[in-house]
């Protein structure tokens, strides 16, 4: 492996992906290093959520060209659960409901399946309990909430908070937050952002996908990328997000068209 790729957490090269024959991603290049927070912004329909789904391995999308590597290992051929076992976590924009399966039971299954795939024993019950207690406190989650059916009847804010709780439990290397701010009021947004910040370590990385700059006031990115029509057309520091907030996307569209 070449020297400069060794430090990469995620390396995406010339990624093309389509759904039902329609190309959505048209050559994405992106490198994310451990300890970094990247924000991906862009107008509706630019391919942000598609990028998140493709990294997670959703096969509704067909990868027609390019590679995705996590710590130098190519992910392209791996099933979604195998990518999860490698440490990829996706916080869903629209978390699904699974009636009758409690949050606790779901997390227990997810953690133990992942441990099994990594050749580890099941997590002992007391350790699991301790972890649940710790992480639910971090995200200010009422314990009663954990015995409810997964996402069933949850408010928008509860669903998103639950996603971040799961992220805290799974301790991924790479977390992708897909529109985590949508549907959150300002207080919930602060709690979620606070949780994400506290889960940050020099060893893991986060990609924040968002439409608005608002979330980036609380989760401060090292890099901001603008996605337009399936391509990253502009990258910069956190000030780029502010500029977008102020001027909208039109000027970038014009710049990109040149």
């Amino acid at each position: 492996m070449a020297g400069n790729t060794e430090t990469d957490m995620l390396k995406i090269k010339n990624l093309h992906a389509s759904v039902e024959g329609k190309e959505i991603l048209k050559g994405i290049n992106l490198e994310v290093n451990p300890g970094e927070v990247h924000a991906i912004m862009g107008p509706n329909g630019s391919g942000k959520s598609t990028l998140a789904s493709v990294i997670a391995g959703n096969e509704d999308f067909e990868v027609t060209d390019g590679t995705i590597e996590l710590e130098g290992e190519e992910l392209n051929e791996l099933a979604p659960e195998e990518r999860a076992h490698q440490g990829v976590f996706l916080s869903f924009q629209y978390p699904v409901e699974i009636p009758g399966v409690t949050v606790t039971n779901f997390m227990k299954t997810a953690i133990n399946e992942t441990r099994k795939a990594r050749g580890l024993e099941e997590m002992p019950a007391n350790e699991m309990l301790k972890k649940i207690r710790e992480k639910s406190e971090l995200l200010e989650i009422d314990r009663k909430f954990l015995s409810r059916s997964l996402n069933e009847g949850f408010s928008g804010g509860e669903k998103k908070r639950n996603e971040i709780f799961q992220m805290a439990m799974m301790e991924p290397k790479l977390a992708i937050l897909d529109e985590t701010d949508s549907g959150l009021d300002i207080d919930a947004l602060k709690v979620v952002a606070n949780g994400v910040n506290r889960l940050k370590t020099p060893q893991n990385a986060t990609i924040v996908i968002t439409h608005y700059q608002r979330l980036l006031d609380y989760i401060v990115p090292d890099h901001v990328h603008v996605l337009l029509n399936g391509k990253i057309v502009k990258s910069g520091g956190k000030e780029l997000a502010l500029e977008l907030e102020e001027k909208g996307y039109d000027w970038i569209k014009q710049e990109a068209a040149v």
């Binding site: 997670a56 391995g57 959703n58 099933a79 979604p80 659960e81 999860a84 076992h85 976590f89 996706l90 869903f92 978390p95 699904v96 699974i98 009636p99 009758g100 399966v101 039971n105 779901f106 299954t109 997810a110 953690i111 399946e113 992942t114 795939a117 059916s149 799961q166 799974m170």
Partner: peptide
């Protein structure tokens, strides 16, 4: 897919959903 993304394979996911149901 949601279950898969959390490291649970399809077979186990179906079992989980059916048991919940």
């Amino acid at each position: 897919f949601y279950c898969n993304q959390r490291g649970i394979d399809t077979e186990k996911a179906i079992a989980l959903i059916v048991n919940g149901f």
